[in-house]
């Protein structure tokens, strides 16, 4: 299994296009960091809205590494599924396109095992992409901007988290994001089984994610309790839940608390359910498929 996994990882990282994602993430993060370094106050003023009329805001302290990491994650985690689809959508269809799939099938490896290894390779790629993002967004921002409390803007409330209470939230959020992105990888992986070239599953995955994300964010009451709770895109933002805290009777934040942990667990369960369904279906289809390419 490990040998097979190494071969699959070699195939992924041998292709130059794999590194496009790493380059794109580095470029976006650098652009955001530079923008906030030189004009962070304007961004904060927009974010704070009318709060600055009533409260004295120490902008230089708010603009710290933890805050910038949150801004970066907020801006790019919604787009990373597209980068994940580039690799996961290519895993079966890419081989079919190159004509190597039939060759692989001549080896004494079960189709189920091969499929599981290919999916795990996509998951490892996803985790590495997230780790790269964590290094650049979190560590580099901490290095260049220092640390302090984080202020997070939600639609109806502004949250402040003390700096001593923030790092574990980032670790949990990255863990959750890995599961969320693995769901997209599973979808691309499933679509990859049906195609003979990788463009189809990549574009199809992107289209599905875009359509469902828009549907998840639409403020149309008809969809709120009927469609949205069942879309995996509604639960992919669950990583943010780790940054929402509970408040005590006096209105102050309870340090180390999570506002709605059962909701995060529910979202996690739904995403894992989707992964199970997508991967199992992909294996089931692949096992029955005639490999002609």
């Amino acid at each position: 299994m490990w040998e097979l996994l190494k071969i699959e990882l070699f195939k992924i990282f041998r292709k130059p296009r794999t590194f496009i994602s790493f380059g794109a993430i580095a470029a976006i993060i650098l652009i955001i960091q530079l923008g906030l370094k030189f004009d962070g106050k304007s961004y904060l003023e927009l974010m704070m809205g009318d709060i600055s009329d009533s409260f004295e805001i120490p902008y230089d302290m708010v603009l710290n590494g933890y805050f910038i990491a949150f801004v970066i994650l907020n801006a790019i985690l919604i787009h990373v599924p597209l980068l994940v689809a580039l690799v996961a959508g290519d895993s079966i269809a890419g081989e079919a396109n190159m004509g190597t799939l039939r060759l692989v099938m001549t080896k004494p490896v079960s189709r189920t095992k091969l499929m599981l290894v290919k999916y795990f390779a996509s998951v490892i790629y996803t985790v590495l992409l997230l780790t790269w993002m964590a290094i650049l967004a979190l560590l580099a921002s901490i290095l260049f901007f220092g640390t302090n409390d984080v202020i997070i803007a939600r639609n109806d409330v502004m949250e402040q988290i003390q700096k001593a209470d923030i790092l574990w939230r980032y670790i949990a959020a990255f863990g959750f994001a890995a599961v969320a992105l693995s769901t997209v990888a599973a979808l691309a992986f499933l679509l990859s089984v049906f195609a003979e070239n990788s463009i189809g599953p990549i574009v199809a995955t992107m289209s599905i994610v875009i359509v469902l994300t828009i549907l998840s964010e639409l403020k149309i009451p008809m969809y709120d309790n009927t469609v949205k709770p069942y879309l995996f895109t509604s639960h992919m933002l669950g990583w943010k839940g780790f940054f929402y805290s509970k408040t005590g009777a006096d209105g102050t934040v309870i340090s180390g608390s999570i506002e709605n942990f059962p909701a995060i667990l529910r979202s996690l369960g739904i995403l894992l359910g989707y992964i199970f369904v997508f991967v199992t279906t992909a294996i089931w289809v692949f096992r029955k498929k005639d490999i002609l390419s």
């Binding site: 927009l46 974010m47 809205g49 009318d50 709060i51 009533s54 907020n74 919604i78 803007a153 939600r154 639609n155 109806d156 409330v157 502004m158 964010e217 949205k228 509604s234 933002l237 669950g238 990583w239 943010k240 839940g241 929402y244 506002e259 709605n260 909701a263 995060i264």
Partner: peptide, 24 residues
Amino acid sequence: TFSIKNYKLPKGVTLDYDDGSKKR
């Protein structure tokens, strides 16, 4: 104790995670 009138948070700055909590 103070009043803050016509307070409005900027919309569209962030995509919120809907955890089912009661919205203000």
